[in-house]
Design a binder for these strands. Structure first.
Lengths: 208, 208
DNA sequence: GAAGTTGTCTACCATTTGGTAAGTGACCAC
DNA sequence: GTGGTCACTTACCAAATGGTAGACAACTTC
């Protein structure tokens, strides 16, 4: 259903219409937010009509659902790789954090969506939760193992994960707060933030 | 204009109509979000008509503006107190964090609004920024002084502030993430989160 | 070349949105 | 007791929203 146009059938960059819709929807949901995104506006940006969107997806909710499914998949791949790569202890945390910042640089909308979905609550949040659950489980048990091994300070692993999540995601998505602090959200600044958050996390987590 | 009804003129708890409107708006903006909040729904909850809201405030934007102004004021008071109280170094950071958690327990909408406004961007975010600017300045220079004194690890004070902000606000407002981690957002859990975030921040910041 | 199938369009529609206009009853000044 | 203000109402409205129905052109299949 989504691959009917083939690799070269799309009117633009060789993308399926449904993929182009998901791209635009992801971008708009992540920045303007779900509620503030209208199908008409979405369609206009794609040089389509709203009805064409509703041809590919039965409803606006279904578009969100598809966006979440796709994005959660991409996010999982990006992080699972870092999480399963060799290395232990702090090195592994650093690898994961770095991969989040890599996502922030290449596809900031992915992290913006994560935020937006958390704000929307169920059922969207539930779907995202379920899709990322394996990742969370692995990360949580990794932290626990490290604490058991005595290489990281002891905390409730779930709260620790929430703290890391909040810090990293905040550092990457809190554009307005950044501006409030007089720091323009540029690419250079992103690197600086990465360096800083890594140093911060390191002193918070690592024993010795 | 807002005090015409006097201290006992309100139909319910002795509150001005315009204050009741702001209360309801704050709650709804903070939870459902600005876009998802309609004047009709707001009015219905207050047993008023939408037109009565538009009698007190010229537009929906103006309601948001007023909500931000009032909330930023309350937030400033709560935090300025903690920030200006006696004590130095870590004790003072702890006092501020504790006061944020106190707000989270008594008026969680205040922090929810902070989040929502950051998401909305200008002009709302700019207004909030300006209103909280003195607070940010004081906090930033406090951290810088501590780092100069060698009692806290050296970081870019603004990025450090962003990290602390993200962590604390995240710990307090990321209900869905909390749920995703299998932690129900109860009052008891809030206390645990406070303990945990304090321990975490302490090891991240304090030298020795 | 007739019969699908596919992707997009035009034409609608009911509902909701923020906002305007014009009233109405209660209270107050004089 | 009349004029005026105050708080709130009913009656509208234009625009936008998500969604339906049906037409239509392009292409494939036989």
């Amino acid at each position: 259903m989504t691959t009917t146009e083939g690799p070269s059938g799309g009117p633009a960059e060789g993308l399926t219409t449904s993929d182009r819709i998901l791209d635009a929807a992801l971008a708009s949901f992540a920045t303007r937010g779900y509620d503030a995104t209208s199908l008409d506006a979405l369609a206009k940006g794609l040089e389509l009509t709203k009805q064409s969107i509703l041809y590919w997806f039965p409803s606006k909710d279904a578009v969100l659902e598809a966006v979440i499914a796709r994005s959660a998949g991409e996010l999982s791949v990006a992080l699972e790789t870092a999480l399963s790569d060799a290395g232990a202890g702090w090195v592994r945390v650093e690898a994961v954090v770095r991969s989040v910042f890599r996502v922030a640089a290449r596809q900031p909308e992915l992290l913006g969506l994560l935020r937006e979905v958390g704000r929307l609550g169920p059922p969207a949040a539930t779907q995202m939760t379920l899709a990322l659950e394996p990742l969370v489980r692995r990360a949580s048990s990794f932290l626990e193992a490290e604490m058991d091994a005595g290489t990281m300070r002891r905390h409730d692993p779930r709260l620790l994960l929430l703290a890391i999540y909040s810090t990293v995601i905040g550092m990457v998505t809190e554009v307005e707060v950044l501006r409030a602090l007089g720091e323009e959200p540029t690419a250079r600044s992103l690197v600086r933030r990465r360096t800083d958050v890594l140093a911060l996390l390191r002193s918070a987590l690592v024993i010795e």
